[in-house]
């Protein structure tokens, strides 16, 4: 029995180490100067930690600037922020209202629409990519933040709707009836009764949508153009196209910077993320 416990903890610690190792390697590499990286093992801790690579990743390296490309990730960080905030609010807002209308009101064809949305969640974005490009271009939004916000809302609404619809379906029918008799119409019922009830699910939806939108690559790559590059796209460019010797410490610092916002949200939200991920797992 005692031996079993030891083995149990041993396995867990090994697993934890293996899962954490890449993250630790990323952090440790980002703190090393290039000489140390060339000379030593990736497992070695930095002997002389420096944030130089972080600075270079964030502000850019103007000594190697070609034309006006003297920017690090800072500008794309701002782009990502400007995409994620409106896209988050709009997709969660629209999803909550849609989910509520589907769950709490008698609308002909509601189940059909829900089924269509559910299937839509699984459609690979590649399948509708080109028509979406044309739509965004026709609206004059191609390469702009607004265009990216729009496509994120389009792609996110199926997921947020599903979360809210499934939650609102669990609200007892009697409660809805009571509110109807009390004279609450569509919006008062939503605002005074349903939305306060759904605060936990609202938090979950916000966290997951934030993670999805921040982590998106394909939509940013396709619709961002030069001016609307989100951080993931900028990171990929930075890693993929360096002149001269590859600076792995800068790459890792840039990677860490890109991962930091979602990592922070994950660590701060704790159980909410875990709870939501099971409910919202269907979105890959």
């Amino acid at each position: 029995m005692r031996l079993n416990r030891v083995a149990l903890y041993g396995l867990l610690i090994v697993a934890a180490f293996m899962l954490m190792a890449p993250v630790l390697i990323m952090i440790s590499t980002s703190l090393k100067p290039m000489s140390e990286i060339r000379g030593g093992s990736i497992f070695a801790l930095p002997t002389d930690p420096t944030f130089a690579a972080w600075g270079k990743a964030w502000f850019g390296d103007c000594t190697q600037a070609v034309g006006d490309v003297c920017q690090g990730l800072s500008s794309s960080f701002m782009t990502s922020v400007r995409i994620v905030i409106p896209a988050l609010i709009l997709s969660v807002g629209l999803g909550s209202v849609t989910g509520y209308a589907l769950a709490a009101w008698r609308v002909p064809g509601a189940n059909l629409l829900f089924a269509a949305l559910l299937v839509g969640m699984f459609i690979p974005p590649q399948v509708t990519l080109y028509p979406l490009i044309i739509l965004v271009r026709e609206l004059g939004l191609f390469g702009s933040i607004s265009g990216l916000v729009l496509v994120h809302v389009i792609w996110g609404v199926a997921f947020t709707t599903m979360m809210f619809r499934n939650f609102f379906k669990t609200v007892p029918q009697d409660l809805l009836k009571a509110a109807r008799i009390d004279g609450a119409g569509f919006w008062p019922l939503f605002w005074y009764v349903m939305l306060p009830l759904s605060l936990p699910i609202l938090g979950v939806a916000m966290i997951l949508q934030f993670t999805y939108i921040w982590n998106d690559f394909l939509l940013g790559l396709t619709f961002g153009g030069r001016s609307g590059q989100p951080m993931t796209v900028a990171l990929n460019n930075l890693v993929g196209s360096q002149f001269g010797e590859k600076e792995y410490n800068v790459d890792m610092a840039a990677t860490m910077l890109t991962a930091l916002p979602t990592l922070a949200v994950y660590l701060l939200s704790g159980r909410l993320f875990v709870r939501g991920i099971a409910a919202g797992a269907v979105k890959g």
């Binding site: 890449p22 990171l235 890109t258 660590l267 993320f273």
Partner: peptide, 21 residues
């Protein structure tokens, strides 16, 4: 928390980290 931490990172970040490893 440790097992699920990679989940919060994007595929791009994952790819770049593993490319280095």
């Amino acid at each position: 928390t440790m097992f699920m931490m990679p989940l919060s990172m994007s595929f791009i970040v994952t790819g770049v980290i593993w490319q280095w490893v």
